[in-house]
């Protein structure tokens, strides 16, 4: 049951999108976020959608993963759409009126635009985790945040914590499954009773889980210290990223995309 959760699903590959420098990929991803919010007409959104779609095709990620990335935000989209639809008012006559429900043409327009914008946004952002392994990604974050070291922000430690956290997600899920079974074997009941009994029913799972997580953390810390880990100072890296031709190319393509979006904004 808990096994179905995947976080930062990564599909290894050797496409230009995969080979891009992860730092650049991360920055362009953030830039993409801004541009999607700048785009204020359907043509610009259409171009963005085509851009994302072609990136998926280039990277060799199956298009069905676009839908998979949209799934978790569907409830959010549906709720905001419904609210928008009923609450926004517009000029002229409402096109639908029933009791207290009135719907204006403009509300439909705004809602549709918002949905499209979110779809393109999420699909585009998901491409980052689809094509970059979590470890490379945290590495990129560490490097990009490294200037913050000068104001004594623990950049390396933060990145290390993220890496370790991601590494232990599957381990803890497995552990939880085991503890749930063991308590069930002792007659624990998670399905019946009122809210308070149900919450209490989780104590026999949460306590052992925390105990073992702390134990693991202690052991890991000890093992790291045994290998002379002492934080980020003076630490060298296995992966030394270098910008390559593919990055220059990616940057130029993205620049072109940005210019097109801005132009459509001006002329449409």
């Amino acid at each position: 049951m808990l096994r179905d959760i995947t976080i930062g699903q990564f599909f290894p590959g050797d496409s230009p999108v995969h080979r891009m420098d992860s730092r650049l990929k991360l920055i362009l991803n953030l830039a993409f976020l801004v541009i999607i919010f700048i785009a204020d007409n359907y043509l610009a959104l259409g171009i963005s959608a085509a851009f994302v779609l072609s990136l998926y095709i280039i990277s060799g990620i199956s298009l069905k993963f676009i839908f998979r990335s949209l799934k978790p935000i569907m409830p959010l989209i549906i709720i905001t759409s419904v609210l928008n639809l009923f609450l926004l008012t517009g000029e002229g006559e409402p096109i639908f009126k029933l009791g207290f429900i009135t719907i204006y043409w403009q509300a439909i327009d705004t809602t549709a635009f918002m949905i499209l914008r979110l779809f393109v946004l999420i699909a585009g952002m998901s491409l980052l985790t689809y094509t970059t392994s979590p470890i490379v990604l945290t590495d990129a974050i560490e490097r990009l945040l490294s200037p913050l070291k000068y104001i004594r922000f623990p950049v390396h430690e933060l990145a290390m914590m993220m890496t370790i956290a991601m590494r232990f997600i599957p381990t803890l899920i497995e552990e939880t499954d085991k503890i749930v079974l063991a308590q069930k074997a002792r007659g624990a009941n998670f399905e019946e009773g009122n809210l308070i009994t149900r919450i209490k029913a989780f104590i026999p799972i949460i306590v052992p889980l925390f105990v073992s997580a702390f134990k693991r953390a202690n052991e890991l810390a000890l093992a790291m210290e045994c290998r002379c880990y002492h934080g980020g100072d003076g630490r060298t890296k296995l992966r030394q990223p270098k910008l390559a031709i593919v990055d220059l190319f990616a940057f130029l393509v993205f620049l072109l995309f940005t210019i097109i979006i801005i132009l459509t904004n001006i002329y449409f």
């Binding site: 552990e175 503890i179 063991a182 002792r186 026999p204 306590v207 052992p208 105990v211």
Partner: peptide
Amino acid sequence: YSEHQLFE
């Protein structure tokens, strides 16, 4: 490893 189920 049943000791991992202790919680009380």
